[in-house]
Design a protein around this nucleic acid. Structure first.
Lengths: 193, 193, 193, 193
DNA sequence: AATGAATGAGTGTTCATTCAT
DNA sequence: GATGAATGAACACTCATTCAT
C-alpha cells in the first residue's frame, strides 16, 4: 500500500500553520491536532513534547533554506555572483515559506534554551553569507567589513523587508524587491559620483 | 511635572523588564507585580488588562526611538547626513534599550490585533527613513529605489545586526558596528573600481 | 470578624477525606476542590502542589498521633505503664482517625521522595516506642530485644490489627482489641507454666 | 510441562518488578511492556486489563506465601512449633520477595473492589495463623485471645518490622529479626519474674 | 488608591485501551 | 499469536481577571 503518508507529515504541516499563525506560546496542541485531523495523543506518540515538535519544525525549515541556497552556490562563481544568488534565493524563500519565516523572526529572540538553539540554526545559515563576504574581501572585490556584522545585516535587511511586504496589504513583487535589495547590498543607497 | 514615584511608573518599569525577559505570553501579571513590589490588583487598577499594559509600553518605547531620532534630523542637513544620523542613532538605541528591542523584534510578527497595531507603530519609525530616502532620490544623491523597501531593509539590517551581537556572547562595540553598517548602507559591499 | 475559618481548613479536611478514600495517585485535585466547595485554583493558591498538600496533611496527622501519645507518657511512669499507654493511645487514635490511618499504611511504602519523607515521620513516632523499650530493658523489666525491631513490630501489630477490623465489616471494639493487644505485647501468646 | 518461555511469564515477571517499584497507579503498561520486551498489545492479548494483570500477580504471590508456609505446618507439630514455623517462614518470605511485599502493604488498604479482593487474599493467609492460635488456645498452651485479632496482629508485627528494615539502609539480618520476633510473639516484652 | 484571596477556563501531558494488520 | 500506531478521556497545574474590603 503506497498510502504511507503517516500521520506525522499531517502533524508537521498543521504545526507550521498553527505556529506561524499564533506563535509558539499561544499555539495549542489541540489546535494542531484539530488542524491535522488527528487525536491529541497521536502528536505525543510521534513527538515528545510541544517543544520538540517545534524544534524539528524549525530545524527542517532552516535546513531547507540553507541547503537550498548552498546548492546554488557553485564553486566556479565569484563572490559577487554568489552574493547575488543569496539575495535572490532568500527573497524567493521568504515568498514561498511565508508562514515559516514569520516563525523565524518571531521565536528567535530571547534567552530560553529553545531560542538559543534556534539562533544557532539561523547562524548556520548566516555563515553562508559570511563566507561569501570573507571570500569577497580576500579577493579584493568587497570592502573590508566585519563579515559577521555584514552577514547578520544582510540577512536582516532581506528578512525584514520581505516580511514587511508579506505582512502588509501589498502584493509581494519578488522581482522588484530583488532589484532593490540587490542594489542596496552591492552599492548601498549612494550614487557614485 | 512633580515626578511622583507613582506606582504606575514602578509597574511600567517592571513590565519592560519582565516582558523583554520572557516575552508577552510567558510573562505573568504576578511576575510584574512582584518585580514592581505592588499587589497584583494594583496593576489592574492602573491598566485595563495585560494587553493594554503591553500596548502602552510598546507605544512609549517606539516613540522614544522615533522622537529621539527625529530630534536629531535637522532641516539643514542633506539626505546623506540625515541617513548617517539614523544609522548612528538606531544602533545607539538598540544598545541602550536592548530589552525593549528584543520585545520589538519578538512581538511584531503575526496576525493578532496587538501585532497589527504594533507594526503600525514600527512603521511610524520606518517613515523617517523612507522620507530621507525619498529626499535623497529627489535630490539625485541616492539611487532610485523603492523607499518603502529601502526603509524596511535598512531598519532590518540595523536591527538584526545589533541584536545578533547583543544576544551573542561578544561585546557590543557600537562604533565598529556603526562604521560597518554605515559603509554598507551607503556603499554596499562592492568596491567601486 | 471571628469567621476566619479560611478556605484552607476546608481544603485540608476535604483532602483527608479524598486521599484516604482513593489514595494519593487516584485522588484528583478536582475531587478535593469539589468536596471542599472551592475552586480548583484556590487549592493552588494555598498549596504549591498536590504533593505539598499531601505532605502537610501527613505531617499534621503524624504529629497529632505522636504528640498525643507523648503527652500521656508522664516521667513518673515506669516502662510497663508507659508501654500500656502507647498501646491504648494508638488503638484509640486509629479508631478516631481511621481515614488518616488508611493513608498512613497505604502511602508509606516505596522509594519515592514523598514516601521516604513519609517513613521518616512515622519513624519519629516509632522512636517513642523504642525509647520506652530501651528504658524497660535497662531497668531489667523487659527482655533484651533490639528496640528498633520491637518498636516497628509493636507499631505494626497495633496498626494492622486495628485496620483489619476497621476495614472489615465488624464493629471496632476498642476495649477488646486493647486487652488482646496489651496481653500480646506484654506476655505474647504463650502461657507461663 | 514443556516450560516454554512463553511471553506470559515474561510479562508476569516484568509486572512484579514494575508494580513493586512504582505501585499500581504509577506503573504503566508501557513500563511493563518495555521491561518484558513485548509489544504493549501483547499484554492485552494475555490479560484483559491492568487490573486483571495485577490481580493475577497478587493472587500468585499470596498463594506462594500461604502454600509455602502451609506446607511446613506438619500435622504432628504442636501449636507452639507451628507458630514458630510461621514466624520463621514469613520473615523468610519477606526477605526473599521484598518487592512483592511492598505491593502487599501498599495496595491492600482502601475501599476499591481491587483492594477488597486483595484483603480477602491476605485474609486467607491470616487464617493459617488464626487456626494455629485457636488450636493453641484449645490445647491450653496459649492465652485465650481473640484469634482474629491475634492473627492480624502477628501478621502486622512481622510484616512491618521486616519492611522497616528492608526499606531502611540496614542489612536485613533474618536470624536476628527472627529471634526478636519469636520472643515477642511467644513471650511479649515483659520478663516473667 | 490599593490589596490579595478567590476563581475557572484553559494548557501540556499521560496512559489504559483498542484494532487493523 | 503478536504488534504498535492511534485514540481521547483525564489530570495537575497556570494565570488573567474580578471583587469585597
Amino acid at each position: 500500500m503506497v498510502m504511507r503518508k503517516s500521520k506525522m507529515s499531517l502533524i508537521f504541516q498543521a504545526a507550521i500553520d498553527v505556529f506561524s499563525e499564533k506563535g509558539f506560546d499561544k499555539a495549542t496542541m489541540d489546535d494542531i491536532a484539530t488542524r491535522a485531523n488527528v487525536a491529541k495523543g497521536t502528536i505525543y506518540y510521534h513527538f515528545k513534547s510541544k517543544e520538540e515538535l517545534f524544534f524539528f519544525l524549525v530545524e527542517e525549515g532552516v535546513e531547507l533554506l540553507r541547503d537550498g541556497v548552498e546548492a546554488k552556490l557553485l564553486p566556479e562563481m565569484d563572490p559577487k555572483e554568489k552574493l547575488e544568488v543569496i539575495v535572490r534565493e532568500q527573497i524567493n524563500f521568504f515568498g514561498q515559506y511565508r508562514d515559516f519565516c514569520v516563525i523565524l523572526l518571531r521565536e528567535a529572540w530571547g534567552g530560553e534554551e529553545r531560542q538559543l538553539e534556534f539562533r544557532k540554526m539561523i547562524r548556520s545559515y548566516m555563515y553562508l553569507i559570511e563566507n561569501v563576504i570573507t571570500e569577497g574581501i580576500e579577493s579584493g572585490d568587497f570592502h573590508p567589513v566585519n563579515p559577521e556584522n555584514a552577514g547578520a545585516g544582510i540577512f536582516g535587511m532581506l528578512a525584514i523587508s520581505a516580511l514587511h511586504i508579506l505582512l502588509g496589504k501589498k502584493q509581494y513583487d519578488e522581482e522588484a524587491l530583488f532589484l532593490d535589495m540587490n542594489r542596496m547590498v552591492f552599492a548601498g543607497v549612494l550614487k557614485h559620483t
